[in-house]
């Protein structure tokens, strides 16, 4: 792993809100990132079923997407979410870790485009999928 990818991982890993949700950056590659979030009863949205709240999954997917942008070969200095659309396909199975995989598939001078998928232990059936656009701040030339 290059210096740049290690640095991007460490930055994303250090975000206070990501830490408070228990997120762990498990993989970074050129333009992609994988982040996990363990099941936690404090993050439940529906106590009757124990299913995690969509907001916690949104936060995970947003973080993974931002990480994918920071890992893009164009070496952005910083990024921020412009918009993110998430489709929730099924409830995440209670007790299972959620994994978000994000790919920054295109960048312009100022905007990065990302696709992101969230799965639980059954990786063949995603829990949620999203598409987002992010600001891209180029490093000073």
């Amino acid at each position: 792993m290059t210096e740049r990818l290690i640095q991007a991982r460490d930055v994303m890993q250090s975000l206070p809100h990501a830490q408070s949700l228990g997120m762990i950056v498990t993989e970074t590659a050129e333009g992609s990132a994988t982040i996990t979030m363990p099941y936690d009863t404090r993050l439940i949205g529906d106590p009757a079923t124990g299913v995690l709240h969509g907001g916690a999954i949104s936060a995970l997917m947003d973080t993974a997407s931002g990480a994918a942008v920071m890992c893009h070969p164009s070496a952005p200095a910083a990024t921020a979410t412009l918009d993110l659309r998430i489709d929730y396909m099924r409830p995440a199975t209670p007790g299972q870790t959620i994994t978000a995989r994000a790919v920054c598939h295109h960048v312009t001078r100022t905007v990065a485009f990302v696709r992101v998928t969230a799965t639980d232990a059954d990786e063949s059936r995603p829990v949620a999928m999203g598409t987002g656009t992010f600001t891209l701040e180029r490093p000073p030339a």
């Binding site: 206070p16 809100h17 709240h53 969509g54 936060a59 995970l60 947003d62 910083a78 921020a80 993110l84």
Partner: peptide, 17 residues
């Protein structure tokens, strides 16, 4: 709730939630 400690700014995920 902070996402970017440098600015500092709220985490986009916290805002979405």
């Amino acid at each position: 709730l902070i996402g970017n400690p440098a600015i500092p700014a709220l985490h986009g995920g916290a805002t979405a939630a």
